[in-house]
Design a protein around this nucleic acid. Structure first.
Lengths: 233, 233
DNA sequence: CGAACTGTTGAGAGGCTTCAAGCCTAGTGG
DNA sequence: CCACTAGGCTTGAAGCCTCTCAACAGTTCG
């Protein structure tokens, strides 16, 4: 199911922009450069599947990846989206477990695969790399803990408003305040942890309340402050 | 509010049992030993508070600590319990953020405080320590992700059954299959993410269905397989 | 151009929360 | 040691939020 397309450009195969690799010395960076493999993945393709054994982690240099778990009745629970500059699949790799999530391409993406052995080499060789890695995981853990609290205590309405604001923070808006990531209603529902119909009804209410404007999957922010009030932040 | 009691015993101040420190060389372990500070904390005392700046992390050598976030209307969301052999407060410390949770003593506990500088020294000096630390955080992140999926997709009934099974795994049973951690109904509710009354009603149903027996806060497991069925695992 | 998927709306059911009232227990102080 | 108080526990009733089911419109893509 992994569908690798034509090779990406030189530019897209460059990892020097990644904060994570900033502290590598030239020799280490060179090894990274030699051992990585970059590929273009088209929309809808699966990077890795829940339960599979991973051979390395991936750096996203272009596009958007959806990370989700499969729950009851095959219903997706979206854990996060990864975009340019972020890494995926590192959690299961580091803890040496089978993948506990599936990663699927939402927007055509370029990923660089970095073998487990290279990761171990960097951890052994460069404490600053390990330290940086620790910080990345710890931040993701904080976000997960916050999400647990939200999902356990807030109403669906509050959570949807919060998810919209979260998307606004993570994915830029265009000149008209339109969200630059387009998700289906079902995907929004799978982030919020609710039914698709509920998302549709609530989005419609948000529009009536002049908080957002909707044109198909495009969401335009009208009253961010109002959304924040609804989200109860 | 931090209430430190009389000094703990020698034995309780010993960190050699911690898996995390197994790979330290004698010199490193000695430094750890010298720079740690062990204290006894009585039930109900606060180890650290949400929003505070941490000066180090803690190793639990005795007792049980409740880690929770404060959500809407001051309602607690319990993130996890830490017991002997586990570490707490390391997440916020590593990512150099203010504490995002509060830690409160549930069962009289002995904790060893390890200063941030010592942690940094170990990370710089010993890649195996960093690697082990990475694995600990990554496992906790997996558990958090699984919990997000459960809480988002399962009913309160399923979640309560699952929480009971989870407690059974993490805290041993006595010879009569009674859970060796006693929580209030409210604390159970704050784990499951529901109202106290719902927990009471559901526990009562579990008892009628001969899944558990209840005596005050003591919970005795009668039909674990049945609970598993209810939990939908 | 049709098939498959996505979005929308309505109706009905039910799980869960909230409020309220009373009971029980556990710890305190006289 | 016992009365007393505060907090935990329990139960009932009412109502709402959210889910599910169903039908249909709209959209996308082969």
């Amino acid at each position: 199911m992994r569908s690798i397309q034509k090779s990406p450009t030189e530019e897209e195969a460059d990892l020097s922009g990644f904060q994570l690799f900033k502290k590598l010395d030239p020799e280490e960076f060179n090894r990274l450069k030699q051992e990585k493999t970059c590929s273009l993945y088209k929309k809808g393709s699966i990077i890795y599947r829940e339960g599979s054994r991973l051979t390395g982690f991936f750096c996203v240099t272009r596009g958007i990846i959806k990370i989700f778990k499969t729950g009851i009745d095959g219903k997706e629970q979206i854990i996060r989206f990864a975009k340019k500059g972020e890494i995926i699949a590192y959690r299961s790799l580091l803890s040496q477990e089978l993948a506990c999530t599936t990663a699927k391409v939402v927007d055509e993406a370029v990923l660089c695969h970095i073998p487990y052995q290279t990761l171990l080499f960097l951890i052994r060789n460069n404490w600053q790399f390990s330290h940086h890695m620790l910080q990345i995981v710890c931040r993701e853990l904080r976000e997960a803990n916050e999400y647990i609290t939200d999902i356990a205590q807030k109403t669906v309405r509050e959570r949807l408003a919060e998810v919209l604001l979260l998307l606004k923070e993570n994915f830029s808006l265009d000149h008209q305040n339109t969200l630059q990531i387009t998700l289906t209603r079902e995907e929004l529902a799978n982030m919020v942890g609710t039914a698709t119909e509920s998302v549709i009804r609530l989005l419609s209410e948000f529009r009536q309340d002049k908080l957002v404007e909707l044109q198909g999957r495009k969401i335009r922010f009208i009253d961010t402050q109002g959304l924040r009030r609804v989200a109860n932040i």
